[in-house]
């Protein structure tokens, strides 16, 4: 039930956002991520953006692991 999925914010109108869900546009609430900018990715759950997904953190996690295991 706590399933949440990534979605890209394509439009921001105050507290309402439009995300692209695999080609389908959906209106969501941005009440918990007021600082978000269009083009960023959110973690979506029951119609609410719970948090912004950090692309930088995602990349760093992978790069650290690759370095630790000597993989590129």
């Amino acid at each position: 039930m706590c399933l949440a999925i990534p979605a890209k914010l394509i439009e921001k109108k105050g507290e309402i956002g439009i995300v692209d869900l695999g080609g389908v546009n959906k209106e969501i609430s941005l009440a918990f991520v007021p600082q978000i900018k269009e083009g960023e990715w959110v973690l979506l759950h029951t119609g609410f953006a719970l948090e912004i997904i950090s692309e930088k953190e995602a990349q760093e996690t992978i790069e650290l692991l690759q370095a630790a295991y000597g993989i590129k």
Binding site: A31, V33, P34, L50, E51, I53
Partner: peptide, 13 residues
């Protein structure tokens, strides 16, 4: 899970 979880969580929420 730092790509979405901040240590302090989502304070607004």
């Amino acid at each position: 899970y730092s790509r979405v979880v901040k240590d302090e969580g989502n304070i607004t929420a």
